[in-house]
Design a protein around this nucleic acid. Structure first.
Lengths: 339, 339
DNA sequence: GCCTCCCGTTGAGACGGTTCAATGCTGAGC
DNA sequence: GCTCAGCATTGAACCGTCTCAACGGGAGGC
């Protein structure tokens, strides 16, 4: 009923604590007979070493923290899964924290990870977290940002070229002959949102006919999308945009739901075409399958782990930025008759 | 650039380590002048105490682990959110681990939490984890199961009456005049699946006309649902069920997508009515909004934290089981014209 | 029989904190 | 002036593990 210590095991096996420790950590350097005896005692007592003490002594942890902007968004879970797979192959464990775009929650997770002296931290930041990142760095805890950094040189980052993604989306819509484009933004402190908007703006600027209207959603969620959708459906038909580019798929799903189920249904894509972002699985299963910008989520997670470990073993490394390219997945919300 | 210790702070403030520790943990017992001086030094050095060392000595942790069956399933994320809110109000941090219905991953997370000697553990188990739970208990780490336990007395649990939920769903379909019911199950080692099936079976048994066919999906995911959906769509119309009860909403979404987008589209609910389970937000936004069984997810998480802390402070407590009642949310996938 | 060598084992010290009995100091009371 | 109480501070012991210099003993060589 009590928690045994290495002492107890040593006493019961008639060896010293050092030997027990060796059996656990360097079994090859202990005689076979001794080893088997100690192992038997360990099993009999159901002894489990105390990781906190071990890490205190070793000065190193096998945990990696990941603070997510929105764990409810499948995109981030896919990134997390990629990170987990890469980490567990190396015997490391990824612990997830969900900030829900709340700066204080984000900071409390980062603080908890800092107090724990984890091996490193991945963050998809809600806003500029340069200060905390520097503090972690002083503790020799590297951090990798998922998504482009606000303050450049603070930490390495793994991101997708969101400006290119925005460009892709808007060009696709313009290429389909749409002219009254709109961008549905989430909170503007999120870098991804402003970058995607910038991409869309530059595509529109290149076109002579197209215009871009901006809608501001309160968050990157289905619910917020519904609100915008109802707003659009409430307008007179000639005042509505003929194409919507939503800052992410959750928004797109909410918008789509609201406008197709409104009193006088709007046809998608005939009346309004919709493009989302992230290519989450639900986008494919929506009322009308949603055209979306795909990001290599699992690869992002795996790359982040790789960078993290490189920096953990060489703290003098300069921050690096790895950027992936997004691609467009066409579906029925923009192109009639496609999958 | 180095990680300071309490020693360094003590030296710089001309006090002993004990005093620094007191400033941090029991500030009221240290003279104001001294306290302010020490606090100034702490701030100046950006000293952050090492939580591992602190907890090693104190023997207690402020972390709670939560191993989720499927972090990609919004239902579990909602439970996690409920737990996080309840925990953070008490100064505790919830760390998430995703087992993805993989027993070995589940065990490796539980092991990591056990090694870390966390305050307690929440688990939505993939299968019978009685052994691990007992092992945790020996370390005085209480565990709370989310969902009904396999081996009864191992740990407390917070669950929803899934048999009642299954009954609700099947009775709803039967009440609509459907007779050729089918249940789309996920992996049968998951308790929720078998319970929901049992509920459906008993509803069917009570009816003279209704029958129940069983489909086995490989996992509780959208993809697995699509496979089943295609299988159903591939049958001759008279061989198809006229009602589907899916073990969860993800399956329902996949099935719905596959059958409505098949070559000869099946009308929902006219040809086939569909009921899901969990009432995740996406269910409402699907091709046809899906009728579902709602569970009080946030409340489940909060209750689990409450039980956990009660057991952490009194280890002699007998395992308890808190059961919530589910309710049916009607939508267009069973009732034409509803929201 | 003695000296090496080598392998296996030992046990003290370190990791970075907290705790608590002991100590030092101040000021009040007589 | 002395005693005593009471408060602030001290520093050694401890939490559970790992590491490494030192040690013991058996085998082999002479």
């Amino acid at each position: 009923m009590k928690d045994f210590r290495v002492n107890d095991v040593a006493a019961r096996a008639n060896v010293s604590v050092g030997t027990v420790s060796n059996v656990l950590n360097r079994p090859e350097m202990v005689a076979i007979a001794t080893r088997e005896r100690v192992e038997a005692v360990i099993a009999a007592m159901n002894y489990v070493p105390n990781e906190r003490a071990r890490q205190l002594r070793a000065g190193t942890s096998s945990m990696i923290g990941f603070v997510m902007l929105d764990a409810g968004n499948p995109f981030f879970m896919d990134v997390a899964r990629g990170a987990e797979n890469a980490a567990s192959a190396l015997g490391l464990t990824v612990l997830l924290g969900n900030s829900d775009d709340d700066a204080s929650r984000e900071d409390s997770y980062l603080e908890a990870f800092e107090l724990q002296r984890v091996r490193g931290v991945l963050v998809s930041p809600t806003r500029d977290i340069g200060a905390r990142v520097r503090s972690l760095r002083e503790r020799r805890i590297p951090s990798i940002l998922i998504g482009r950094a606000h303050s450049p040189a603070a930490a390495s980052s793994v991101s997708v070229d969101d400006v290119a993604g925005g460009l892709l989306a808007a060009e696709h819509l313009i290429g389909l002959g749409r002219t009254r484009l709109s961008f549905v933004a989430g909170p503007l402190h999120i870098r991804q949102v402003t970058d995607r908007l910038a991409g869309a703006q530059s595509a529109v600027a290149r076109s002579s006919a197209a215009t871009l209207e901006l809608f501001g959603a309160t968050s990157l969620s289905i619910q917020a999308g519904r609100v915008i959708g109802r707003q659009i459906a409430g307008r007179r038909p000639r005042d509505r945009p003929d194409a919507i580019f939503a800052a992410n798929d959750l928004l797109a799903i909410g918008i789509l739901e609201a406008i197709t189920l409104s009193e006088v249904p709007i046809r998608v894509p005939d009346d309004i075409a919709i493009v989302g972002y992230d290519d989450i699985e639900y986008a494919r299963s929506a009322v009308v399958p949603i055209t979306s910008i795909r990001q290599p989520s699992a690869e992002i997670g795996a790359t982040a782990i790789r960078l993290l470990l490189e920096e953990a073993s060489d703290l003098s490394l300069e921050p690096r930025d790895v950027t992936f390219q997004p691609c467009l997945i066409e579906r029925a919300s923009t192109v009639q008759g496609s999958a």
